[in-house]
Design a protein around this nucleic acid. Structure first.
Lengths: 334, 334
DNA sequence: ATGAAAGCGCTAACAC
DNA sequence: GTGTTAGCGCTTTCAT
């Protein structure tokens, strides 16, 4: 392994000057710079990030944290797009991404301790687990942090305009003539609650009072299975809805399965609208009408916010991204 | 930030002894150990990974690299399961995962340089991009490395038994009475080629000579769209196959879409079998019969292999995991 | 069982 | 423009 000392020796300059070259300082003559760069190439020099971090207290590393307890997390369809967008801008600004787990070295220690040990410059939390005390400990700590799909007084946040999404869904169904609209919710989760709340408000705003039995909750991790169960419940009702708004595409998929099993056809008998626009949505039969979240946008925006914090801006930021109605084949006019 | 020196000062012991305690050395008296641990807790001490790495030349970090050029990569359905399995065993053994990109700090530098700068202990490559010279540079370097879905003389490898998978698919179709079997391939990719080759051999072994026009290639990144195009080609044939074996579930989805568009029904008119068992497979209409890859198993096995290498075992390892036929509703007996 | 000293590779004052 | 010095936090001989 070659170090700046080797380069210094070879060129006759001091380590300091060599260091300056690699850090783009302007007070190095062009001639010197060239010689040093040449020597570096010749010696196959590669800087050592650990050594640099030790002195500068900057690791150029961002911790990525996601819900490990639920089956959600990295396998959630939402995750891929978000992390992709995040990674794109973070790496373009010189940061690398590291997964942060609750445990380190096999020992339980918590997210915060893990972050401190690794010296990450900031941290992004995707789909937080509210019930996890380690999550709160982290958020309340003094590390730059941005949360997706969460509200917090201690950290910056960004999420989709869930309420507006519900509004759009109800609006679309209403415009199609539907009045008897049911809702399958995303349980006790941030997005889930916003969407259910948005649904109720949107209904009221149109003079439709949503019957309690028309609102049934799926699980907080938006599983297909829970969507199916929820729909089964709705199908038992004497007076069935003509449309259902599911708070997530997975829930909608589950609902459609439940209907198929009972010979109810979509959209002929019941219209369905989802939320997310997961990749498979357009390949379903019928293709799923849904509210699209801009996952890539959420990720890249999150990265920009976080880096802004890392660069020393202390004020909390919060942002909300618009969603979009994607009309396909799962809703019909009444 | 508190250091071992602070603990040393508080307890009256030397930094060396403090260090020994945290590294589990046995030559420290129980009393001393207890005092030091207590002081550490009191001072809220957290070790500094950078400092440690600087002296030990071990970062306890594993680089994760995936195909950035194609749309595949992190968004590929295969990725989630693999990384999940990998992360589980890697973190349980004390390693953290870091994404390694081709560029660092916005400057192009290549994977190898990036790895050296970050001082990763080893690296796992998921879905390599053969055409990338930086990939080869990395693999040929002297860093512990394990490749998924690739063959190499320079690194350890692990992948599913693709050939056997094709064999099983053909076998199943054959047992159902199908003789006229088409194949949609995964293009110029490692898994794609193995599966196509396996298909041809399996056909021959049963005395079926696969017609050239019955073999059409989708794209190397297994997109739905390319599956659809491929199927359209097959549907133009005078003499249509009674079944098609798609080298990936996404391709199968595309094929099913093409058929639906042309009023061909699955499995009544044509049977379809896929490869992967992506999550949506069971939710399709009809639910997709497919060859399941054990993605989680691939990931965890890869981690074990890599860590074995990191621990100093120089010999190359290669492993292959069995696949499994998952029978659902997309194939019918003839 | 404990400690002194040196050094990992780099940057940051500060002087020249 | 360039160099000297000190130090980031830790581990590692090697003494004692």
């Amino acid at each position: 392994m070659t170090t700046i000392y080797d380069i210094a020796k070879l060129t006759g300059f001091s380590p300091t000057t060599v260091s300056k070259v690699f850090n783009g300082y302007s007070d190095v003559s062009e001639k010197t710079r060239r010689k040093i760069l040449e020597a570096a190439q010749q010696l196959d020099y590669v800087p050592n990030a650990h050594a640099r971090s030790l002195t500068t207290k900057r690791s150029w590393t961002i911790g990525v944290l996601f819900n490990e307890s639920s089956g959600a997390g990295i396998l959630h369809p939402y995750f891929g797009g978000v992390i992709e967008g995040f990674k794109k801008v973070a790496t373009s600004k010189g940061y690398d991404l590291m997964f942060i787990t609750k445990d380190i070295g096999g020992k339980p220690s918590g997210y915060l301790e893990h972050c401190k040990i690794r010296g990450v410059d900031g941290i992004v939390v995707i789909l937080p687990d509210y019930d996890d005390p380690y999550f709160h400990e982290l958020v309340e700590a003094d590390i730059p942090c941005v949360l997706l799909d969460s509200d917090s007084e201690h950290a910056s946040t960004i999420y989709s305009d869930n309420t507006m999404g519900s509004e759009m869904a109800v609006d679309y169904l209403y415009s199609l003539g539907h009045r008897s609209i049911a809702h399958i919710g995303g349980g006790h989760s941030f997005a889930g609650e916003k969407r259910t709340q948005g649904f109720i408000e949107a209904m009221k705003r149109r003079g439709l009072s949503p019957k309690p039995e028309f609102i049934v909750q799926g699980s907080y991790d938006f599983t297909v299975e829970s969507g199916r169960k929820a729909m089964e419940q709705l199908l038992q009702l004497q007076d069935r809805p003509t449309a259902v708004f599911a708070a997530g595409d997975n829930l909608a998929v589950g609902a459609m399965i439940a209907m198929r099993e009972q010979g109810v056809s979509v959209p002929e008998d019941i219209s369905v609208i989802g939320f997310d626009d997961i990749e498979m949505a357009k390949y379903l039969t019928p293709a799923l009408t849904t509210i699209r979240q801009n996952t890539y946008g959420l990720g890249s925006r999150a990265a920009n916010m976080l880096i802004y914090s890392i660069e020393g801006h202390k004020e909390l930021q919060r942002d909300m991204l618009p969603v979009e109605l994607v009309i396909r084949d799962s809703c019909r006019p009444l």
